[in-house]
């Protein structure tokens, strides 16, 4: 994805992570800005299904040719699925960060945490 984009239906963590929330379930990934800053992603280390993630804490790492970066959980919960396709083809995180480049699905333990995340406009303000 060559052009910056921050979909309106997502919620954003200031550490450049997104969450797509559907009731008590959420999907996490990294933002366009994060993948652009990293450059060519060559390594995504999927965490274990069943592992607990804690809001504001790292739950995995992604690595580009240049650098490694922790991925921060935007919300707390338990991992119910990981993106094996992004393990095999980590470039999906660059080409489709909000779609095929998703990282984990999580059953949320405290959906009220959602209130602290940013909407698309607020996140874009943060980047400016």
């Amino acid at each position: 994805m060559a052009e910056a984009s921050y979909p309106e239906d997502l919620r954003y963590h200031p550490e450049h992570d997104w969450a797509r929330v559907d009731g008590e379930e959420a999907t996490f990934g990294i933002t366009w800005y994060a993948q652009d800053s990293l450059g060519d992603v060559v390594f995504f280390d999927p965490p274990e299904v069943g592992a607990t993630v804690t809001k504001d804490e790292p739950y995995t790492e992604v690595e580009s040719v240049k650098a490694v970066s922790d991925v921060i959980a935007p919300l707390s919960g338990e991992i119910t699925a990981v993106n094996e396709a992004a393990d095999t083809n980590p470039e999906l995180i660059n080409t489709d960060p909000y779609g095929e480049g998703w990282m984990v699905k999580v059953k949320l333990s405290d959906p009220s945490e959602l209130d602290s995340l940013l909407d698309s406009a607020a996140y874009r303000d943060l980047l400016d």
């Binding site: 450059g39 060519d40 060559v42 580009s64 040719v65 240049k66």
Partner: peptide, 11 residues
């Protein structure tokens, strides 16, 4: 400049 299009493509 650290990169233009991307490290892999330039490499």
């Amino acid at each position: 400049p650290v990169q233009y299009e991307g490290v892999a493509a330039e490499h």
